[in-house]
Simulated assay, not measured.
Amino acid sequence: MSKADNTHEASASAIGYLFQCRYALLAGLRAIPERPQLAISIEKFDDVAFDARGEPTQLIQTKHHLGKAGSLTDASVDLWKTIHIWAKRVATDIDSPFRVSFNLLTTALAPANSAASFLRIHDRNEREADKLLMEVAATSKSQENKASYAAYAGLLPSQRLNLLKAVVVLDRSPNIVDVRDEIARELYHAAPRDQVDHLTQRLEGWWFSIVIDALTGNGPSSIAVLAIDQRVDELREEFKRGALPIDFGAVEPPAAVIAELDRRPFVRQLRQINVGTSRVEWAIRDYYRASEQRSRWAREDLLVDGELAKYERDLLEAWEPRHAALQDELTPTCPPAKRVQLGQGLFRWAEQEANYPLRSVRDRFLTHGSFHILANRYVLGWHPDYKVDSPSLSDEA
């Protein structure tokens, strides 16, 4: 196989896996109204599964085709791989078809009068589907499907029929891009129309983080449907008209970012007044969170009418009289230690007392981080002589 073929196969495999993760979120959203007591899992009982108290109630095999529609013929590898998995389950648990729904979700098409076509939600005929499958199992020379044929044919006729009665084929399903559109439609009433895409992006970010924790053993292996509902409620509150969503309130900056920020002017200002190491680290964290959050609001056009500039002006006007009072305490012979002490007092107010909301956001990181953003530009400072240390504008960027 050529390098290009390997790359294409790897890409298709990765997209197929992302598809099942994204589809699991869509399935979880759709389960909220009628099956909120269930949990959903990925790669636990099947590709995707719903379970109640640890017992599966719905198993979902997902098959995604990239760049072509695919076809779910009677000899289809997709179809027989799925049947193989389910036949083995029935062989060891003959009552499972009475407790579990077996779903094959695929972007491929089941041709008319094929076995898969008789297992759709409507116009079903399980006996005809079994007849067609057994014919293929008896006559096909496919080595790839050989073990699957044996697993299915090895079931008793009643077991095969019970299995097929529990099977639902969902062909022509949306692809990985269309599934995201379906998720957005489920969230249509959760945010203003022009913000639904941003809400969807945030929900997916949360979801993939939860899924990674589940798959790596750092979180529960099944995710409660109600957890999805709760997260949607939280996002709905954040996206109310007039509200601003919070994305970076608990984010820690990467080590490389901390090292770079440690050289910034706002940190030099803190060291100018002998602020301790821990407080400098907190300042870097708040600067990072505030910078990232403000940038995201700006990218998503959530800030209007120059309100960020007005917010910075409010911070500056809160700082100005305090800094002026500090200057009033200075004398021509004021020693350096006294100047540092006065600067420490001013910073202590900004660090521990100042709390200025931006619209609906009252999170402390925004106020304190925004003070550091202004200090980074030398718009304000803490030491009485903070401007003396001000570098060229190019160094401030």
Rank of each mutant, 00 (worst) to 15 (best):
E300M: 09
D301L: 11
P332K: 09
R285W: 04
L244R: 07
I258H: 08
A324H: 05
R289A: 01
R264I: 00
D286E: 15
Q352I: 07
V251L: 02
K338A: 15
P332H: 14
E351P: 05
P254M: 05
L330M: 12
T331P: 09
E307L: 01
Q293W: 01
V275C: 14
A243M: 11
R313L: 12
S295W: 00
G369F: 05
F365M: 01
R362D: 15
E260K: 06
R348G: 10
E300R: 06
G306Y: 02
P321Q: 06
L358N: 05
N355A: 13
R299Q: 14
D286P: 10
L316F: 12
I284T: 10
V340M: 13
R289C: 02
A256E: 15
L366W: 07
A255R: 14
I246C: 00
Q341V: 11
E252G: 10
L316P: 04
G343I: 14
I258F: 07
G249Y: 01
P245L: 09
D262S: 14
Q293D: 03
S295D: 06
R299C: 07
R289N: 03
P265A: 06
P335H: 02
E320H: 13
Y356C: 07
I246F: 00
A250L: 04
Y288A: 01
S278L: 10
